[in-house]
Computed example of a mutant assay.
Amino acid sequence: MMTAAKVSICLPVLNGIDYLAPRMESLICQSFEDWELIVADSFSDDGSWEYLQTFKNDPRVRLYQIPKEGIYPAWNFCIEQARGDYLYIATADDTADTQLIERLSELLDRFTDVSIATCAFDYIDENGAILREAGSFGGRFYGADLDRAHRRPGLMEFLVHSFFGPSWTTITSVLFRRSIFEQVGLFRCDLGPYADNFWARLAALESDTLYIPERLATWRIHPQQRSRGRSSQHTTAKAMAGAAVLSTVEDRLPAEWKALPHWRKTLLQTDWNEYFGQFNLYRHKLRSHPSAFMLGLLSALGRNPAYVAQQLCKGFPAAPNSNLEDEVRIIEQFCQLVKPALRVEELA
């Protein structure tokens, strides 16, 4: 009987033929060789499935066809098939440095109490050229710490995920211990593009995160990229799910946080600002884009009339003044309340 590989690579595919060859090459040529590749094709009709057949005789590669239900069901399917101790989620149009899995698995081998290891990445264009102006969500908080290898406390990551989105920005720069999916569960399939955001928040309460500054992953920006836009339905689901997540994990959050006035509202302010912002019920919108204001008013009357009444009583005030400095200050305030103070720990 064949022993399980140490690393399971998950690769969902839907009509990815334009970039599938460089993606497969970047996986097949990994310097770390103890891996299995689980490919889940959602009945592509552009030649992707036929191309993948060229790997069917490789014992490390398992090919499946699954219903076309979206990216998160496809991720979940692959995760359920995984047998390795570590798990890497690939995307069909991105690439990876040949040392990505080796370097990140070394981190998880070294720190056995941690289940998440991530690295720096580059945005690339359709031709694979690096877009120099790229930045990460996590960089908005971690700043200069991104230049050194470090360990991020889980509670700090929970805050960063909540205010800025997943700190790693692209899941293709992360290696997970597979057991964390047993602790946290799979990705929700009812949140549109926010599913990895909420999974990340829950995962942060199960594990710290290890980071190295080596640029070992890419995120490709190209004309054929499928939209992951934020619809009003998804924005509403995000706000509701954020509140539900907070209720679920409340007993695991520091008492010092919960002693603050309006702590719950503070932790959810990004979610709710995005939800209410979709209605455009602000004075400047009424003046500059009255049609957008009226459409938002009609939508809000049907979905949240109490919010309309609140804005009316306030004379349709300016939009909430949320900026990077405010969000960083809030995160730092919450971190300093925990004793010992939460801080990034440099890796020797």
Rank of each mutant, 00 (worst) to 15 (best):
S8A: 09
I9R: 03
Y19K: 03
L20F: 05
I28F: 01
S42V: 08
D46V: 02
S48N: 07
R62E: 06
P67M: 07
E69A: 11
E80I: 04
E80Q: 09
A82P: 00
R83V: 04
D85C: 12
D93K: 01
L100W: 00
E102Q: 06
R103G: 11
L107P: 01
T112R: 06
I116V: 09
N127H: 14
G128I: 08
A134Q: 13
G139Y: 05
Y142W: 14
P153Y: 06
H161M: 11
W168F: 14
T170D: 06
S173P: 00
L175H: 00
I180H: 04
V184P: 03
Y194S: 05
A195Y: 05
R201N: 09
L202A: 11
S207K: 03
T209C: 11
Y211M: 11
R220T: 06
H222D: 06
T236F: 08
G242S: 08
A244H: 15
V245R: 01
R252M: 13
R252P: 11
P254H: 03
A255L: 12
H284M: 14
P290K: 08
S299C: 11
A300D: 05
A318E: 14
S322K: 12
E325T: 13
D326V: 09
I330F: 09
C335R: 10
V338I: 13
A348F: 15
